[in-house]
């Protein structure tokens, strides 16, 4: 039972990673991070329920809860920033923001 769940979790995580890296729309990028969070939540729960050794415990789920908190905070801030950037530059295109590159 553990294997398929963990496989799915891993798949979700890598899909999120691919999305994060390839997509150019800022919002979608953030969405992909949320996707990654989903993968992780699934994994945590799976390992909580079917631990490799010892009785099933609630730690996985507890941790997932905290993860949710973080995801929420992150989403809030992220989106606020996205809105700000959009207002500032007028575009959501990730390529537009190259300030880090020095001359």
């Amino acid at each position: 039972m553990l294997i398929p769940l963990v496989l799915v979790g891993a798949a979700l995580f890598s899909l999120g990673l691919i999305g994060f890296v390839t997509r150019r729309n800022l919002i979608i990028i953030f969405l992909c991070t949320e996707l990654m969070f989903q993968g992780i939540v699934l994994n945590l729960a799976a390992f909580g329920r079917y631990p490799l050794s010892g009785p099933p415990s609630l730690d996985g789920q507890a941790f997932a809860i905290f993860l949710l908190a973080i995801a929420a905070a992150e989403a809030a801030l992220g989106l606020a920033l996205v809105v700000l950037l959009y207002r500032y530059r007028g575009t959501l295109d990730a390529n537009a923001y190259k300030v880090l590159k020095d001359s």
Partner: peptide, 14 residues
């Protein structure tokens, strides 16, 4: 390689 875009850094990390 330092082209300032966050994504390309993430790509290289990945």
């Amino acid at each position: 390689a330092q082209n300032g875009m966050l994504q390309s850094y993430a790509l290289t990390t990945a």
